[in-house]
Amino acid sequence: MWDKIFHYVLIHMVYLAFAVFFGGILFKLIIVLFSKKFKGSLATYPRKLPRPIGIAAEALIAMVLLVLGHLELIKEFKFIQIIKHDVFLGAGFVGITFMICTLYFLFRRFKSPWREISVPEDFLLLILLFLTTVIGSHLHIGERYEMAQFGLNAELYREYFGSLVAFKPVIPEGISLSPHYVLVALHIFLANLVLMMLPFSKMMHMVFAFLSLNLKRK
């Protein structure tokens, strides 16, 4: 039975998650497009940089690195390999940094004055992100430092991810027969949840940040 569930999580749910993710963002953007504009200007001064550069400078670009890192799961991209590195980037430190950050953000919320302004969403999202990263990091570090013949290499993920992108989904036997299969499934499951929640939670700031910062410079 678990095989079936994992199969569903690793294939169907991934497609569903991406559909909800893109569909949700599109839905939100369409709502925005048809909404009433603000009559006046919400600008603040001074404007030291021209609008697009100013926005890029202000918007957080950490997520760009995350997306780049995951791109390499699909295949080897030359433009990313300009700086020579092993897949994945950062030798495991990206995940650890991310974990430290999520934990910091989470523990900060237990303390005043953040405690007063926190709502359940804040805690749940951080816990979700933390769990996703812990498992993802575990999978990566386990392989990189060959702990106990971990045996889940980047090639396998590429095969799996590449098949998803090509819409011919297969789960390589290297993954499905591995004793760590459950961890892969859990990581993918949690990542799916994050993707699906993103457009409908405060994580939407990833997209709206650019638009709201634009208002500040209009």
């Binding site: 939100k28 709502i31 925005v32 909404s35 009433k36 504009k37 603000f38 919400l42 900060r108 004055p113 953040w114 302004i117 926190s118 709502v119 804040d122 405060k202 939407m204 700031h205 709206f208 940040a209 638009l211 709201s212 208002l215």
Partner: peptide
């Protein structure tokens, strides 16, 4: 009063403090 900026502001705040 639910205009465009308001739509951004409702979803965007992460209560970072």
């Amino acid at each position: 009063r639910y205009n465009r900026p308001m739509k951004y502001y409702i979803d965007t705040c992460t209560r970072c403090g």
